[in-house]
Amino acid sequence: MSELTLTVMRLGFLAVLWLFVIVAVQVIRSDLFGTRVTQRPMRRRNAAPATAGAPAAAVPPPVAQQAPPQQARGPRRAPRNTPAKLVITGGTLTGTTMNLTDQQITIGRAHDSTIVLDDDYASSRHARIYPAPDGQWIVEDLGSTNGTYLDRTRLTGPTPVSLGAPIRIGKTVIELRR
């Protein structure tokens, strides 16, 4: 083996070692999960729904508008009166929206809630909102200290939520919208 070959081999092997490290780091980079938070460009309310999906490719475009008859994704429920997103209209998270899927949404101060509240009057596992099989969304208080209010009444058991009815948790107000 000539000196040159040995040197090339030596440096080549070091390069391969580092290539491995770099590829591993790339794998970590592509391994994000959790919750995606997308910023919408500041517009007026009426323009917002149309552009909501634009900034991030991965966010599915707002449901229904142009092609309602297509049974787009999975078990889409009757389009009439079915909420498609959750909007926070009061409290520190005001303006946050979330598309409703068939997953339940947990609300509270605990870090693993779907919506993490920063509110002294919220419990760590305060309430949850989940879809019933018939497509209705149900809100349920999880034994919170200060209670969950639908409109003005304090919840005592799982209660169906109608479109636009304010759910109040501490200072936070949540509505389901189409």
């Binding site: 999960f33 959790g34 919750t35 938070v37 605990a110 870090h111 693993d112 993490v116 920063d118």
Partner: peptide
Amino acid sequence: PGVPPRPAAPPGAPPSADPMGPRGHSQ
């Protein structure tokens, strides 16, 4: 401020998560 790890992400145990950084995303 507290937008959410979805249920799978940092966990039901805030105290243990914190020393390692309260990040919303798990990589």
